[in-house]
Nucleic acid binder design. Structure first.
Length: 648
DNA sequence: TAGGGGTCTATAT
DNA sequence: TAGACCCCTA
């Protein structure tokens, strides 16, 4: 969320910049910003569970652009959530939930484009998605580092140590962590907005001799930040006014004078606010980062530097006692939330040299921060040497990979394979996408079960697991009607002759299935297990709630004309307390699996399709435009919905 | 009237 | 996440 309005506030400390002016330097990149943008371009694919690496390619475009300007990128990723950000994360989760509900509602109303817009806001970036990018970067010898907690603090530290001379981000929080040269709004043309911390006094409107960075940071915290909401009526302007007025360095005393200095007599500054303010400030100063040169976690600024009481650092993270774990977390090998090992890459792994990249993959020639003899002095010298032509990465042969780790990696890889198979299954409701049978299908039972912790890392609200009610359109004609692009007759006959068991498998999943508070990425969900169809059938539960879209008689007629045997079944798959939940559908063969009482056939003229019960008679108005309904149908098919009689 | 707060929109291809 | 826009309040 950052500091509201900070970037415009910093106008006087900002200047336009182009990457061509930064040649020879190193930049730390807040990679989640790129990932979020990249995900935006393929959110629907992710939501549908289709395989895509568009977000990876999008980030690599930026990486290649930096390299083309002779800039060494260090991609920095967020790690664990801080307790201090629990509220922020909660709000984001709720926002995604809200978007999901809106998408459902808009689908119900047939407002397809708006629903898509909402869908894009529902997809979250998971660590596993980040790992895919990290793995691509490794092939290119581009440094990546996963921060123990916030990428912002990690980047500020890299900047402070002169390992990175610039920081690229969209998050204005970077200024509070002490970033010196921060580039916002970088576009693919190479232009951005450079904020220079040396000029922050200009933004605050005070003379340089009266300015201190602490004043700026305190002003931002006062105006409201991720770790502390602002007092009512206090924004950047008033916070700035106050910080310029007060000469008191002890904020426990100074903060009490806010009502007096700002002439806001009704404002109350209580002890709790002051305590939280001190904690927020300590969080920005002393958050844990990972030092790749020393290979250990440390605080961004030592407590001694500010004589900070450690009791204020309860939100600045905790030190991982296991240094090996901290190292692999920083490399990206561990899921930051579950600490489960997902990869086993090591900078000194000799095998890294063996795996030659594809021809189109270019490796950088920059020194790696993970290199044993890396230091900033050398970096400076190297930046001046323009004649360097060989790969500077130094690998020494180390027998790093133990059998135990290998076994663990293999187990996790099996899970990943299972996830991939799930993705293939998802393609079944993406009508017309040819399904490949995984060779591992028969060994699905060997996939280790997911840990409870993993289930907490669900991110994608549209992800499906085998317990979720599925969607399939068994009728080819209807299928073409609903999703013409994906059900062309030229498709393999496998699609049409797919055995019933295959369809049954597809039935096991639904986009808007029962979900937990935290949702997950379909790609990397670690909880997915493949089950036998019969097992899956047993998991189909009685609907608890449905959303339906009225089908106009005209449309119903057109469907009937296409095929009289249009079975439309709704399966509720949403939380019982979610009144706007979507419904998934089953073909008639699956209808029997449902409690009979939940299915009620209606005459074609009265059929409703989709997402929820109509609340007004207006919705069942026979004059509903056919075109609109068709749009609705297309949308529904996109998410695997299929017509069925109305449930009351 | 200045400024804070809430809502909505664009972001990619 | 930031910016535009609008509304509310002191």
């Amino acid at each position: 969320m950052g500091i509201t309005g900070l970037i415009p506030f910093l106008e006087k400390a900002s200047a336009k910049v182009h990457l061509k002016d930064l040649g020879g330097s190193t930049v730390a990149v807040d990679t989640y910003c790129w990932l979020h943008k990249g995900v935006f371009g393929c959110a629907e694919k992710l939501a549908r569970g289709e395989e895509t690496d568009i977000y990876v390619q999008y980030c690599l475009k930026y990486v290649q652009m930096l390299i083309s300007y002779d800039i060494k990128p260090i991609l920095v990723f967020d790690g664990q959530h801080l307790p201090a950000k629990a509220l922020t994360e909660q709000r984001r989760r709720e926002s995604r939930q809200q978007s999901k509900k809106r998408a459902a509602e808009l689908l119900r109303l047939g407002r397809v484009e708006e629903a898509r817009s909402q869908m894009r806001r529902c997809v979250d970036v998971t660590h596993e998605m980040a790992l895919r990018l990290i793995q691509e970067c490794r092939l290119r010898h581009v440094d990546c580092i996963v921060a123990p907690y916030e990428a912002d603090a990690q980047m500020a530290w890299l900047n402070k140590q002169n390992i990175a001379q610039y920081i690229i981000t969209e998050d204005s929080d970077l200024t509070l962590f002490g970033g010196q040269k921060i580039i916002f709004k970088l576009d693919l043309n190479g232009t951005g907005l450079l904020v220079d911390a040396q000029k922050l006094h200009l933004a605050m409107g005070c003379k340089e001799e009266r300015y201190h960075f602490d004043k700026f940071r305190r002003m931002c915290i006062m105006s409201g930040c991720d770790y502390l909401d602002s007092l009512p009526g206090i924004g950047l302007a008033k916070a700035c006014k106050f910080m310029l007025k007060t000469e008191q360095d002890d904020m426990r005393i100074a903060l009490r004078k806010i009502p007096q200095y700002l002439n806001m007599r009704n404002l109350e500054v209580d002890d709790e606010y002051i305590e939280n303010f001190m904690k927020a400030e300590a969080t920005f100063k002393h958050m844990y980062i990972y030092n790749p040169l020393e290979r250990r976690m440390e605080r961004l600024c030592a407590l001694e530097d500010y004589k900070t009481d450690e009791s204020y650092c309860s939100n600045a993270g905790t030190l991982l006692p296991d240094s090996e774990m901290a190292f692999h977390l920083a490399l990206g090998n561990l899921n930051p939330f579950t600490l489960k090992r997902l990869d086993n890459w090591h900078p000194e792994q000799v095998s890294a040299l063996k795996s030659a990249p594809a021809k189109h993959v270019k490796r950088t020639k920059h020194k790696s921060i993970w290199q044993a003899n890396y230091n900033t002095t050398e970096l400076k010298e190297d930046n001046e040497k323009t004649t360097q032509t060989t790969c500077a990465l130094y690998f020494k042969k180390v027998d790093f990979v133990g059998q135990t780790i290998n076994a663990e990696i293999e187990a996790n890889q099996r899970q990943e394979l299972a996830k991939h198979t799930e993705a293939e299954l998802h393609s079944m409701y993406s009508f017309g996408v040819k399904r490949k049978r995984s060779p591992s299908e028969s060994s699905c039972n060997s996939t280790p079960p997911a840990s409870p912790a993993q289930s907490k890392s669900r991110h994608n609200p549209f992800a499906k697991d085998l317990q979720r009610s599925p969607v399939v359109c068994k009728n080819g004609s209807l299928l073409r009607l609903l999703s013409p692009n994906k059900s062309s007759p030229s498709k393999s006959t496998e699609e049409r002759t797919r055995p019933e068991t295959t369809r049954v498998n597809a039935i096991k999943r639904s986009i808007f299935a029962k979900e937990q508070v935290e949702v997950r990425s379909r790609f990397f969900s670690t909880q997915t297990q493949r089950s036998e169809p019969k097992e899956m059938e047993s998991k189909i539960k009685e609907p608890e709630d449905t959303i339906e879209v009225i089908e106009s008689p005209a449309e119903g007629k057109s469907v009937v004309e296409t095929n009289n045997n249009v079975d439309i079944v709704l399966l509720s798959s949403c939380e019982s307390d979610d009144s706007s939940s979507l419904t998934a559908t089953l073909p008639s063969s699956q209808e029997a699996a449902l409690p009979i009482t939940t299915v009620e056939k209606l005459p074609p003229s009265a059929r409703r399709v989709g997402l929820s019960k109509p609340k007004t008679s207006k919705r069942s108005n026979p004059n509903t435009k056919t075109v609109k309904s068709d749009e609705s149908q297309t949308k529904l098919s996109m998410f695997g919905f299929q017509k069925r009689p109305v449930l009351k």
